[in-house]
């Protein structure tokens, strides 16, 4: 079973040289730490920056230079800055190659819920609805099961939706799964030490799995 860093490490292997990538808050942010050497990517921050660099050195924080998580950051050679409308313009027109974001639930037809829990304070969707509705390539980083062992990969989302029929790949602490265009999860890889049976048990949505599924390579 993977921890958060393990999920991030596995997702990083999906990033190809030359990609423009938007990383959401939480596990997706960790993906930046595992991008392999020699793979050139440009990170987009939807508050208006392409080419997000690392955190500044202590004492060099600039209040005018933050990312979408409101953290102080830096730019890199070749960075560019723009307004919020253009930022979502490049998202909507699919100039961003890959979007990685978290989710509370995903359904077998690719619906995603990640912004609202009824009865709890609603903070808002931020840019999540724009991203999921527009991105051509979305990877969801999420927990497969909650603390009670209940599946978060469902036949149908129970929480209010962020987007419909838009997710094609999910990486969890247990597995890598594709969501098939005709519906259903397809097990692609299992986490080290996790059995296909356990993944079957932990997936309440329709799951297609071969008897023998390869283990993830995290190196």
């Amino acid at each position: 079973m993977l921890d958060k860093n393990g999920i991030a490490r596995r997702i990083a292997k999906e990033i190809k040289d030359g990609y423009y990538v938007n990383l959401g808050i939480g596990i997706p942010t960790l993906v930046a730490n595992y991008i392999p050497d020699g793979v050139n990517v440009v990170l987009q921050s939807e508050n208006g920056l392409l080419g997000m660099g690392p955190f500044p050195f202590e004492g060099e924080e600039d209040p005018d230079m933050i990312n979408a998580g409101k953290q102080t950051i830096t730019t890199l050679p070749g960075s560019s800055i723009f307004d919020s409308a253009m930022s979502f313009g490049m998202i909507r027109s699919q100039k961003i190659d890959l979007t990685i974001l978290g989710a509370m639930e995903v359904s077998e037809n690719g619906d995603i819920a990640n912004w609202k829990i009824p009865g709890k304070m609603v903070k808002g969707m931020g840019g999540a609805m724009d991203l999921v509705a527009s991105a051509k390539n979305i990877i969801v980083a999420m927990q497969h099961i909650n603390k009670a062992g209940e599946s978060k990969l469902l036949p149908k989302c129970s929480l209010p939706l962020t987007g419909v029929n838009c997710i094609r790949k999910v990486v969890t602490e247990l597995a890598v799964l594709d969501i098939l265009p005709e519906g259903g999860f397809r097990l692609i890889e299992r986490a080290p030490g996790v059995s296909v049976d356990f993944i079957k048990q932990s997936t309440s949505g329709k799951l297609f799995a071969e008897a023998d599924v390869k283990e993830m390579d995290l190196n």
Partner: peptide, 12 residues
């Protein structure tokens, strides 16, 4: 004032 919401830094 330009208050910083999340002050994140890396060590030198």
């Amino acid at each position: 004032e330009k208050r910083i919401e999340q002050r994140t830094v890396r060590p030198r």
